[in-house]
Amino acid sequence: MKQSIKMGLGIIAALSMTAGIAATSLADDYPSSAVTMVVPFPPGGGADIIMRAMGKELATQTGQSVIIDNRPGAGGTIAAIHAKNAKPDGYTLFFGNTSTHATNQHIMAMKYDPIADFKPVSSLLTIPHVLVVPADSPANSVEELVALADTKPNGLSFATQGLGAGGQILGEQFSKASGKNMLAIPYKGGGPALLDTSAGRTDFMFSGLAPVRSFLADGTLRILAVAGPDRLSILPDVKSMGELGYPDVNLNFWMAVFAPAGTPDEITDNIYKELVTAANSEAMTELVNKSAMQLHVNGPAALAEQIKADSQEVGELLKGVGLKK
């Protein structure tokens, strides 16, 4: 009897050892086949183009191709569920963002847990936002825009790319910081929102820089400021909201790579290392600059911190305007 228990323990020990060896060798070999990146946007969008280029870089580095799996819909929920249900072996990754990991939980009934279901790998990019007004707006500065709110009995209207989008969060931050009445007008995407702002139907909007450029070219929109604490190197003459006395108008819209929860550390560390190299490649820096985005590769710990901080901030803001569910 004793003998058999000993033998049993021995077998267990032996088994767990081989399992341990198997796990390490799995991580060592990684990636030994194609890796799927689930993207919560339709093909052709800014995030999709960046991830396709990134995939190409990663493929040259690792010798394994990266398959882009576009699963748009339900504010990123369809993609998130698809990724979290995948085997946590590093062969399915998720290209999440501020919406999927910090905003959705405050505006919709969640079918995934942004913290428990995912393991943060690293942030990759941020999308700088600018404050634009219609060309014929009486406001020539942020100060004048704030003053304009007092001349209108109903306050100002600002267009947003949709409920909980970057433009709305920044607008609500602006409203709170200035203490003025500003009402968010949700659109279905940034295009129609910018078009209506350029026609003067709303008073201002916070938008990513890239889609604004055609409106700057035809002179129907003007940039008053850059959101956040710092100026942008591509717009050296435009003051930041931080400089102008609104340091709290600072939400940084980011896109980041996640693995399903339970993916071994060795594998996510490996992915992070590869991401750093790919992001700093010449092709990527050029594309990122052209797309008016910024590289922001910060690692798992910093990403986790960022999610926590952003989620809290967004939750409080949306609660303040009665949108929190």
Partner: peptide, 23 residues
């Protein structure tokens, strides 16, 4: 002329320009 595609198909056509840095 406005950079506003009417539907998701047109958005991809637009993307074919944007990847080349043509706005």
């Amino acid at each position: 002329t406005l950079g506003v595609p009417g539907d998701s198909t047109m958005a991809i056509v637009l993307a074919a320009l944007l990847v080349h840095g043509i706005n």
